[in-house]
Amino acid sequence: MAYDLSFAQDVYKNSEMGHWIKMCKQCGVCAGSCPLGPHWEYSPRQLFQLVRGGKKEEVLKSSSMWMCTSCYNCIVRCPRGLPITHIVHGLARYASVKGYADPDQVTNRFATKIFWGNIVSTGRVGEALLTMRLYFVDGLASGIKRGLEMKDSALGMLMTKRLNPIPIRGKIKGYAGFTAMIAKAQELEAKREAGA
């Protein structure tokens, strides 16, 4: 049934900045502001109306939220002051946490697993490892292929001392505290996301 508000209300409450979705007046500025706009299945404005319309599957299974480059164009132009970038990030996260997002969606996989895993494993980004993980995510063969495609660039980076030849970096000194902090934050976050 359309416009069943239970999904919308859950999003308003439990998705980051989700309550702002109520405020959209469907002007379309966000869609026109987005650098990857044409690649979105639903523009932010449409996503918001779909949320309000109770179209849970359409929203959460859409790849749209994963097209955000975090350029913040929409946020500064929205006439209603919706923090659209954050709302879209929140919806992406929501879709991921609730298990709707396609785990093989490239950005989902990169953002939720590879990047986050990379930073929490040591406390800082290990660029080389990050890149390798990204290339080899689909297995060795395609990883080598991707790596080869970018080999000139990588070589350039290495030669200009902008890529670490040793991919594994050390942990930060306070890593134990850092990890405990993250764990606590994740625990609180999980509670919040569950609507507790």
Partner: peptide, 12 residues
């Protein structure tokens, strides 16, 4: 007729 969702919808 929902012009924003571009289709027919039914509301209870």
């Amino acid at each position: 007729t929902d012009k924003l969702l571009r289709g027919k919808e039914t509301l209870e």
